[in-house]
């Protein structure tokens, strides 16, 4: 239903964000775009959403080339909840709907119940925890019943428990609505858990290094041992083996003994420059 062909994006300052990206997303798929920061994966999502324009290449929905406009069929969930602080939860969820106030609120209430926020309709965003706010953002994206939901590292700002809950919530919603999900993430485990296809991006400018299709009998499992071979092959693609792998772990635990290793190692440019 979504096809990306030879898409290239150049920033205004002349820096190439990504080039020659091609892949397909079928209806009902959960496709992950996985890559290190700075590889242009978030920018890719923004181009697909219509928030930015590509220099060349084609984004087509249902075989029709997307113009400069943002697609009707697209819902976006950003890394931050991006709720309007002056609106209640209920009004935030119905923010994008065009109907009478009553209908909007009815639809919003129904979705809020689905994301587990019943009873919070009249709260304001400042009264919500991070996880709750992101649930509201999910509800806001869902209420317009988009055909495809674009998610830009939606859970990366949350703590581990909340992240797992929301990942499960996302899968529940997906199972119920059978919508298509395109998810940008830098978390290999998250990609392995949620997705059935993983587009691995690498380099700067970012390119598609590999499209990994997960075995159908091992989808949506937190048992990562059964996916060890896939994980290893993704590590291989991202060249995160050996010293690099150690440095990656030491980054999450800076106090670890392996830190001397990272100091002596030159930091690759693509991890230092903050990408979109």
């Amino acid at each position: 239903m979504l096809e990306i062909r030879e898409l290239t994006k150049v920033f205004k300052n002349g820096k190439v964000a990504f080039e020659d990206i091609s892949f397909r997303v079928g209806p009902g798929d959960i496709v992950g775009i996985l890559g290190p920061s700075g590889c242009g994966k978030s920018t890719l999502l923004r181009v697909i959403a219509g928030l930015e324009q590509a220099e060349s290449g084609v984004v087509s929905f249902y075989g029709q080339q997307a113009g400069s406009q943002i697609q009707d069929a697209v819902g976006v969930i950003f890394q931050e909840p991006r709720l309007m602080p002056w609106l209640t939860v209920l009004d935030n969820v119905s923010f994008g709907l065009q109907a009478s106030r009553k209908t909007r609120h009815q639809e919003a209430s129904a979705i809020l119940e689905k994301v587990g926020l019943r009873g919070y309709e009249l709260f304001y965003p400042r009264q919500l925890s991070g996880g709750m706010a992101q649930r509201v953002a999910i509800a806001r994206a869902l209420v317009a019943s988009p055909d495809i939901l674009l998610l830009d590292e939606p859970f990366s700002a949350l703590d581990a428990f909340t992240r797992m809950q929301l990942q499960d919530l996302l899968l529940e919603i997906w199972a119920e609505n059978r919508c298509t999900l395109l998810l940008v993430t830098h978390d290999i485990d998250e990609a392995l858990y949620l997705c059935n296809t993983i587009v691995v991006m690498q380099g700067q400018p970012g390119r598609v290094a590999e499209v990994v299709t997960l075995p159908a009998d091992r989808l949506h499992t937190r048992d990562l041992e059964s996916l060890a071979d896939v994980k290893k092959s993704i590590f291989n693609i991202l060249k995160l083996q050996g010293a690099s792998l150690a440095s990656r772990q030491s980054r999450t635990a800076p106090q670890s003994t392996g830190s001397s290793l990272t100091v002596s190692e030159p930091i690759p440019s693509n991890t230092t420059s903050g990408g979109m």
Binding site: F123, Q127, M132, R135, F161, Q165, D168, E172
Partner: peptide
């Protein structure tokens, strides 16, 4: 900030939905 918390504060974040 604290005055607006609901009675059920925290229950959402400690229990996974659908389990």
């Amino acid at each position: 900030r604290e005055t607006g918390w609901p009675q059920t504060r925290g229950s959402l974040d400690t229990q996974a939905p659908g389990h």
